[in-house]
Design a protein around this nucleic acid. Sequence first.
DNA 1: CTTTACAAACCAACTAGTCGGTTTTATAAA
DNA 2: TTTATAAAACCGACTAGTTGGTTTGTAAAG
Lengths: 209, 209
Amino acid sequence: MDNATRSERSRNAALEAAIVIIARDGPGRLTLDAIARESGLSKGGVMHQFRTKEAVLKALLDRQMAHFEEFSNQYHAKAGAISANPELATQLATVREAASAPNSAALALVAAMVENPQLMSLPREREMKRVAAIKAEAADPDLALLRWAAARGLLLSGLFGMSPLSKAEHDRLFARLLDDKQWTALEQPAAPRSAKSGTPKAATPRKRA
Amino acid sequence: MDNATRSERSRNAALEAAIVIIARDGPGRLTLDAIARESGLSKGGVMHQFRTKEAVLKALLDRQMAHFEEFSNQYHAKAGAISANPELATQLATVREAASAPNSAALALVAAMVENPQLMSLPREREMKRVAAIKAEAADPDLALLRWAAARGLLLSGLFGMSPLSKAEHDRLFARLLDDKQWTALEQPAAPRSAKSGTPKAATPRKRA
DNA sequence: CTTTACAAACCAACTAGTCGGTTTTATAAA
DNA sequence: TTTATAAAACCGACTAGTTGGTTTGTAAAG
C-alpha cells in the first residue's frame, strides 16, 4: 500500500477511535492507550501520527471544524435565496446539523476543553466572526442573537445528555427557529441611535396589548 | 473548635478548592491531590471527608443544585405577580444567575460529566420537570421552550469560554428574554388539535407579509 | 540503502485510594 | 476540676495501577 494512504488510514482510525471513546466513556477516559486499543493500532503507531495527545485533540477539532465549515459554506451559497438573513440561517442550519450528528464536533470540543481549555480559542474566534456577521445583517440584531443562542442551547443541552426534549420537539423547534416569517412580528428597530444603549426597560410594545 | 463546624469548614475548603481548580486549570486537572494542595488540607484529610473522588463531585453537584434551587424558589414566590409565565420567568432568572456567577454550578456539572457521565441523571430529571412546567403554563409552549433554550445557550456558551458577547449584550439579551411583553406578539395557539402534529411547514403566517 | 510506518517494551510522573499513627474534641467518671 | 477513655478529624507515607511519552526493533516503501 502507498505510504501516504497508509498514514491517512491510520490517522483516520485513531481519530474515529477517539470519538467513539469520548461518546461511549466520556471525555475523561480519552487516553492514548485507549485510542491505540480502540483503533487496533499500537501505541507507537498512534504516537507516530500524533506526536502528543494535544496533537490528537487539535486534529480532532480541525477535522470537525472543517466538516462543519464545509456544510456551512454549502448552505450559505443557497441561503441567500431563501432567507433575508442568510448568515443567521446558515448558522442555525449548521448548529442543527451538529446537533443531529451523534458523534459530533462538540464532543471533540468538550474533550479539548477538559484537557486544555485554551485550545478553544480557535473555535471561539470563528464563532465571533459569525456572530458579528449575524448582527451585521439583521434588522433586529438582538433578536437574531437570541435565535442563535436558542439553537446553541438546544445543541449543547442535547450534547450534555440534558435535553428533556423529544426528537419531534427538537426538530419542530429548529424548524421554527429557521422560519424567518415567524420572527418578523417582533422585530424592533436596529438601535435607536438617539437613545442611550442601556438596558431598554420596555421598548415600545407594538402589536397586541 | 466544634467538631461539626471543623468538618464543615474542611468540606467547604475542599469543595471551594475544587471549583478553583476547575475554573483555573480545567476539569481534567481536578485530582484529589490537587484538592489537597489547593485547600491546604492533607490528602488524608480530604479523604476523610470524602471517601472517593466521586463523592467530591456528588457533593459539588448537590451543593450547587441546592444553591440554585433556593434562588429558584425565592424567585418563583415573587414571579407569580410579575409574569404570566412564572415558571419560565423563574428558570430564565435562575439561568441568568448561574451565568453571572463565574464559579458556577455548571463548572461542577462539566467536571461531573467528564468523570462520570451518569452523575448527570439527577440534574437532568429536575430539568425535565421544569421544562414540563414551562410547557404546561405557556400559551405557546414552543416559544417558551425557545426562550428557555436561548437562556441555556447563553449560559453554556459563556461557560465554555465561547461566548462572543460582551457583558452589556449578555445582560441586554437576558433582559429581553425575561420581558414577556416582547414575546406575546408572536405567540401562536397552543396546538391546533385538529391537525396532525408533524413538522408544520409554515404554520399560518399571521401578520406582516 | 534510506526513509517511513508501525510495533512492543519501557519509563518517570501521576492517579485514586489505603493505612498506621497523631492531634483535637467529646463524654463522663472521680 | 481533673483525669480517663473514646471518638472524630487529620496527617503523610505508601501501594497498585494508569498516564503521556520515549526508546528500541522490524518490516515495508521508495
